[in-house]
Amino acid sequence: MTKELIEATINGEPVEFLCEPRQSLLEVLRDVLNLTGTKEGCLTGDCGACSVILDGRVVCSCLVLGVEVAGGAIETVEGLAEGTHLTELQQTFLEDAALQCGICTPGFLIAAKALLDSNPDPSETEVRYALAGNLCRCTGYDKIVRAVMDAAALMRQRQSSSSSAKQGREA
């Protein structure tokens, strides 16, 4: 099958890749670009293990074709941390023991990031519904929900202290 040359931005970096029209974005990430942090659990859009952020929205990368992302911006789990500096979500997932086997974790981190980007102070119910597309079979979700709420609190704290610092400087 003939391949197409696709240009996109992945985790902030420009990327070019060749892909067959039938290859999913998940397959491109994992098998073409060697970004294996994004996981495959079902290939039918039901488990969320393959979640990535595409142009600001969470998508199941198994349901997106590689050729569809031309010109798009993709965020994967590999792009969350800045260097060795983990995000609050990654940190609270560790501190709250929100992973057991960890196969669902990249998908949950992506879905939770998208939630907190748009809603910095979600209720437990809002968290649960935002994560409804991600299956975890190990944890019963309890510690995942707590980790997301704890990360939200840390992020609000950081934002209020940086904005009060800013105000302090301005004053």
Binding site: T36, G37, E40, V77, L80, L94, G102, I103, P106, L109
Partner: peptide, 20 residues
């Protein structure tokens, strides 16, 4: 904090399907 934690929240941990 679990010793394999950082690898698992950064996507670095290698599961079976990640080998090539």
């Amino acid at each position: 904090i679990r010793p394999d934690g950082v690898d698992k929240v950064t996507g670095r941990a290698k599961y079976g399907a990640d080998y090539a």
